[in-house]
Amino acid sequence: SGQSGPTLVRVSKSANTLGIAVEGGANTRQPLPRIASIQKGGSAHLCGQLRVGQVILEVNGMSLKGMEHRDAARVIAEAFKTKEKDYIDFLIADFN
């Protein structure tokens, strides 16, 4: 079967919220942040390329490997808040 490697997903900031719940981080059962849910109407939902269960490896080129949950969540939140870019680049892995 086609083992696809990590995928780069560009999420435009098309809504007021990113609209994902993330679970996981260093020193927990889920070592890398995983998408736990996607809220309707959020930027992630409107983008349509993110799926529940996908693992976020990088945000705008910054690796989340080894980061505690709160630090990883802060990186994602700040990437969405910043006015420098009107999108966020997620490097995503499909671990099932």
Partner: peptide, 15 residues
Amino acid sequence: REKRLTLPPSEITLL
């Protein structure tokens, strides 16, 4: 006896 370390579940953050 080797003590089995069980990792804690993670928090969930809404973004």
